[in-house]
């Protein structure tokens, strides 16, 4: 059974303005409905395959984000949703912002936009699913070897 048929998604709000957060939620509800790809929104990092992060990292939530990432089982994919998560966006120059989330954890898919549009996010999640499959195949091959 391929995991990519039903990847579970964990959403973490790093220091987003809520705009991207509600768009992430909106993509799981009717009209956009990413659940039709089998994606389910979960609150538990130990059940999650895809980590969707909104907002840039600040000093306070850096360890939280690292911990969430570490708690997710392999293989895992990270989606940076919104321009703030990609590189800091409008808050780039703020004293408390470190920058995009790739300063802290590796990012696989970047979905820009302020706020990120649900269409863009769904596209990013579909891309993430493909990467998830790749990572899984690689892990399997490594285990055999």
């Amino acid at each position: 059974m391929k995991m990519s048929k039903s990847p579970w998604l964990l959403h973490y709000d790093a220091s987003s303005c809520n705009g991207c957060d509600i768009e992430v939620l909106a993509s799981t509800t009717p009209v956009y409905d990413v659940e039709r790809f089998g994606v389910i929104n979960t609150g538990n990092p130990k059940h999650a395959d895809i980590l969707v992060v909104t907002g840039g990292v600040n000093y306070q939530n850096k360890p939280v984000l690292e911990q969430l990432y570490a708690q997710m089982p392999d293989p895992k994919v990270v989606v940076a949703a919104g321009i703030c998560a990609c590189d800091g966006g409008v808050f780039k120059d703020c004293y408390n912002i470190l920058g995009g989330i790739d300063k802290v954890i590796p990012v696989d898919v970047y979905a820009p936009g302020c706020a990120v549009r649900p269409e863009c996010l769904i596209d990013a999640v579909v891309k993430a699913i493909a990467i998830l499959d790749e990572k899984r195949a690689r892990m399997k091959a490594e285990n055999k070897a």
Partner: peptide
Amino acid sequence: FRTGVKAP
């Protein structure tokens, strides 16, 4: 407010 810079 736990900021990276003290009293910004």
